[in-house]
Design a protein around this nucleic acid. Sequence first.
DNA 1: CAGTGGTCTAGACCACACC
DNA 2: GTGTGGTCTAGACCACTGA
Lengths: 257, 257
Amino acid sequence: MPALPAPDSMDAAPAAASAGPAFSPLYRQIKALLVKSLNSGEWKPGELIPSEQELASRFGVSQGTVRKAIDEMAMENLLTRRQGRGTFVATHAEQNIQYRFLRLAPDKGPASGMARHFMDCRRMRAPAEVARALELKPGDSVLQIHRTLSRMGRPVVLDEIWLPATPFKGLTADRLAQYAGPMYGLFETEFGVRMIRAEEKIRAVAADARTAEILQVAVGAPLLNVERLSHTYHDKPVELRRGWYDTSTHYYRNELN
Amino acid sequence: MPALPAPDSMDAAPAAASAGPAFSPLYRQIKALLVKSLNSGEWKPGELIPSEQELASRFGVSQGTVRKAIDEMAMENLLTRRQGRGTFVATHAEQNIQYRFLRLAPDKGPASGMARHFMDCRRMRAPAEVARALELKPGDSVLQIHRTLSRMGRPVVLDEIWLPATPFKGLTADRLAQYAGPMYGLFETEFGVRMIRAEEKIRAVAADARTAEILQVAVGAPLLNVERLSHTYHDKPVELRRGWYDTSTHYYRNELN
DNA sequence: CAGTGGTCTAGACCACACC
DNA sequence: GTGTGGTCTAGACCACTGA
């Protein structure tokens, strides 16, 4: 009955490392189409997407099927549902779901924002590990950003951020400093790159001389080292971030579910 | 139409710090009943629960409503659905969903299991912070366990585990050592306590003399300090765990979604 | 008020596991 | 084959938003 193209199974099939067409239900095909529209920029972050009824008739399926597709996408933080208003493309520019990526909380006091200071933003050839992580060709152009986060005037975080030069052409330290709100919000509005998901590798390391000076700690002091690889739609990596956190008055919070 | 008791709204209502009855849909009431059955031990970890049809007729609702309740519980890892077989109570004793709580991975090689060594298991009065975390009265009896995890013969993790003595009466280091499989599996089968969810606070710290000797690192070496508070049904805290991880050849992996 | 997402129902059929 | 969960549909009504 539904008039859809081939049941391509390009979606989450956890157990499928083997062959086989791996049956893909209708709602996943709908979901794939919706993700495609998000990725192409047809609907931008913060915008309202068509109603479930309209999408249902557009795709020639029932509202329930569209609903199930949207349900999954809402759970993955791709979309945000608001009863009575509609369904919106999720965005990092909102205040409500903040601190989704910065997991550092102070030992005492509220988890208020931290003061940002951008030290530099340089363009250079990608070092080997950076190129590998970002799936670039060796020698491709990348941006390297250094910044700190401070609370109560004391630096707590030093970040080294690597971005592929291609989608982020024209990004400067000034541009970063002038933008109010989360960095990932700027990436969305200015460069059309939305961060969806990230993996982090966390270690305890000893502060080297340069880091110690910036964070105002002793050389050799224990620091939390967080290496984050962030992805946009379709699991494409677009940011490598290395952070050094002074955890003497802050901690990294995590939830295991 | 549905013949259910009062629409008690004791479930996840994130925005409700204010007053109001906070309308609770049918499927959440069903979910609350199912959680109650799990908590009471009517269905034990690993067991098959009644089919959706049977639950639907038992509660006097449609299958779709039961389905939605079970969907949420499956997402929270309370239940596991298996097509063609039925719905089972989730358990830590299974091999498939391992490493849900131990997030430490080796830099190279597969994330194979680690050798456990239990150093001691003592009964004592709860220190103030432990009592507070576990919501016990000051001076209540608790168990303190020390253990290490090793890979390739080298110690990587030192854990200090605090458990309330009441549900865990009779737990000994021998009992722990003899049980094959994850510790939380033993807690389920022997003591009827299932860990559902945990919060972790992570820091980088310098190794003290005692820890350094156990982990065979230098005094002052940077270690990952992980403080975990684990909860069972209804968010009741039942375990406080403090871990020190040597991250020179391992890292703590995390996913941000 | 109209329009949206949210809930609930009833029934059909499919995919899968076990006998 | 029988029984389970998984998908899909169609329609009704509820709760919420904003004009």
